[in-house]
């Protein structure tokens, strides 16, 4: 089973992320992550299940899920390229604006050198790109012990923490 980083540890990836093509023959059993438009068009049925998460692409914002966040166990945010930083704002909004308590998972071009920032913006799960060493990537979560700004994990800026 593929691995991912969840809450600071390397664990088995329990979730299967499916795109529209894979979903053409229907939704399999088990934990699945579906695209936003699939979620929206099958919303009523999917809300019956507790093992379906939604994946946001750049341009799809947390507010598109605002009525469902309480029911969703997981929101994935896709980084088609690590340089597309929209997902950082989405994660932050999920946590601080909408108070989402479930798993926020970074998927796609997820690399060690961005993990520290991602974690601070509210991601707690990272599907590190398959060709990279996940053990090494894990250490990226500890690049810094000092942060000036508040973040999702501690909203207080440094001077309010001291």
């Amino acid at each position: 089973m593929a691995k991912l980083i969840l809450d600071g540890a390397i664990v088995d990836n329990q979730w299967q992320r499916l795109d529209a093509d894979a979903l053409a023959n229907g939704l399999p059993d088990g934990k699945v992550i579906v695209p936003l438009d699939y979620w929206q068009s099958h919303r009523q049925a999917l809300l019956e299940r507790t093992d379906v998460g939604v994946c946001l692409e750049p341009g799809e914002e947390p507010r598109d899920l605002v009525d469902d966040l309480e029911a969703l166990p997981l929101v994935a945010i896709h980084f088609p390229a690590f340089k597309d930083g929209r997902g950082y704002s989405y994660a932050r909004e999920l946590r601080t604006r909408f108070g989402f308590k479930g798993e926020v998972r970074a998927v796609g071009d997820v690399l060690r050198d961005q993990l520290f920032y991602m974690q601070r913006c509210g991601f707690n799960a990272f599907e590190v790109r398959a060709d990279r060493n996940i053990e090494e990537a894990l250490s990226g979560l500890k690049d810094f012990s000092v942060t000036y700004q508040g973040d999702v994990n501690d909203p207080r800026p440094l001077y309010r923490r001291a």
């Binding site: 690590f82 913006c121 700004q149």
Partner: peptide, 13 residues
């Protein structure tokens, strides 16, 4: 200080 390693704004357009 606010902008230094601000996690949300490291990969702007």
């Amino acid at each position: 200080q606010w902008s230094t390693f601000n996690p949300e704004f490291a990969y702007l357009p």
